[in-house]
Amino acid sequence: MKVVVTAVVAAGALAGCGGQTRAGTAALVGGDRITVASLDRTVRDWRGQFKDDPVANQIRANSSGLAPGLGDEESETDMQGALSLLVNFRVADKVARQAGVAVPDGLADRTAAMMNQRGGAGSITLATGLPRSHSRDLARFIATQTAVMQKFGADLSNAQSPLTMQAAQQWGELFQRTAAGMHIKINPRFGQYDAAKVDIGPVVYRLSSAETGTGEA
């Protein structure tokens, strides 16, 4: 279970670009808009479900890079994490097209069944920072990664084999290139994209020239 959740978070990539977004927009992914209202609702639903799911809490606590618990209110980290995944789901669909790989519903179904055998698809989805309603999206994301890596020659029976590791690198590089070409825009409220970390980073507050002392005398 730890491997599944960590792979989902680590494999995803998100590219952002500057520019203004419409009021109420959390992110634009090509022509697809993720609203602030839907993101707020997603994180609220996640928090309500996550606190009552001990399996999800255990998976999250055992997975590197994931906060183990909840604060009193929705945090920017919660919002950033959920938004990153929602964007990544959309990017993955285009990655599959770029790679010339079909991801049939049957493959997503088998992936969901595998998740149910390893802690439960709902609990695994909660551990990543999304509510259970996104279990199917997460299963499709994992199925897409699996299909693309297989095309690149991965030996999925051995995660540590040189072929699998090379395929994972190719998947990551293709994901980055694809995302960068989609002109993804992130609302500055939720931070900025860090290409080196392939993730949404902390909000950066910029001072005016006078406040930084860089203005002309």
Results as ranks from 00 to 15, higher is better:
97 R>D: 01
102 A>E: 12
100 G>W: 07
63 S>E: 12
101 V>I: 15
57 N>K: 09
56 A>I: 02
55 V>F: 11
80 Q>R: 14
86 L>H: 01
97 R>C: 02
103 V>S: 08
73 E>F: 08
63 S>P: 15
76 E>R: 02
109 D>T: 05
85 L>S: 00
74 E>R: 04
100 G>H: 05
85 L>H: 01
75 S>Q: 08
110 R>Y: 10
70 L>T: 01
92 A>V: 09
65 G>W: 09
79 M>I: 14
79 M>A: 12
51 K>Q: 02
109 D>S: 04
68 P>A: 04
104 P>A: 10
112 A>T: 12
64 S>H: 09
80 Q>W: 11
100 G>Q: 05
80 Q>G: 09
99 A>S: 06
116 N>I: 02
83 L>V: 13
80 Q>L: 11
78 D>M: 05
45 D>S: 14
65 G>P: 10
90 R>C: 00
116 N>P: 02
80 Q>A: 11
72 D>K: 12
90 R>E: 00
111 T>L: 06
87 V>R: 02
45 D>R: 14
51 K>E: 00
56 A>W: 02
96 A>S: 14
75 S>L: 12
71 G>S: 06
101 V>M: 15
49 Q>Y: 02
120 G>K: 06
70 L>Q: 01
107 L>V: 15
72 D>A: 14
46 W>A: 03
119 G>M: 14
101 V>L: 15
45 D>T: 13
73 E>Q: 08
66 L>V: 08
82 A>H: 03
51 K>P: 00
48 G>N: 06
116 N>T: 01
58 Q>C: 04
64 S>V: 13
119 G>C: 14
54 P>S: 05
